Computed example of a mutant assay.
Amino acid sequence: MRGDVVVVAVGLIVALAFSTLIKAFTDSVINPLVARAQGGKSPGLGWQLGDPGNKATYLDIGAFISALIYFLIFMAVVYFLIVLPYKHFQARRGVAAFKDPVPTKTCPECLSDDLPEPASKCRYCGSAQPARG
Rank of each mutant, 00 (worst) to 15 (best):
97 A>T: 01
71 F>S: 08
124 Y>A: 00
128 A>S: 12
47 W>G: 03
23 K>A: 13
65 I>Y: 04
61 I>S: 10
15 A>G: 15
33 L>R: 11
43 P>N: 12
104 T>M: 07
33 L>E: 12
8 V>T: 09
68 L>N: 07
121 K>N: 08
35 A>L: 03
100 D>W: 09
99 K>L: 04
41 K>I: 01
46 G>D: 14
16 L>H: 09
87 K>M: 03
33 L>K: 08
124 Y>F: 11
44 G>W: 03
65 I>G: 03
115 L>A: 06
28 S>E: 12
107 C>V: 07
21 L>Y: 10
38 Q>D: 12
13 I>T: 13
61 I>T: 09
63 A>M: 08
35 A>D: 13
82 I>E: 14
39 G>L: 02
30 I>E: 06
81 L>T: 15
67 A>R: 02
21 L>R: 05
94 G>M: 05
70 Y>W: 09
41 K>C: 05
83 V>D: 15
42 S>K: 10
4 D>E: 11
53 G>Y: 04
27 D>E: 15
56 A>V: 06
102 V>T: 07
128 A>M: 09
93 R>A: 07
79 Y>M: 04
80 F>W: 07
22 I>P: 05
89 F>D: 04
86 Y>Q: 06
84 L>H: 06
49 L>S: 09
79 Y>E: 08
109 E>C: 02
44 G>C: 03
96 A>G: 00
104 T>A: 05
51 D>G: 02
73 I>S: 05
68 L>W: 10
17 A>N: 09
10 V>R: 10
11 G>I: 05
34 V>A: 07
60 D>E: 07
28 S>Q: 15
98 F>Y: 14
75 M>L: 14
26 T>W: 11
96 A>N: 05
73 I>N: 03
88 H>A: 13
127 S>I: 01
50 G>N: 08
116 P>M: 05
6 V>S: 13
11 G>N: 05
31 N>H: 11
91 A>W: 14
62 G>L: 04
114 D>I: 01
67 A>C: 03
111 L>Y: 10
40 G>F: 08
64 F>M: 01
7 V>A: 02
15 A>R: 09
24 A>R: 15
106 T>N: 10
74 F>W: 15
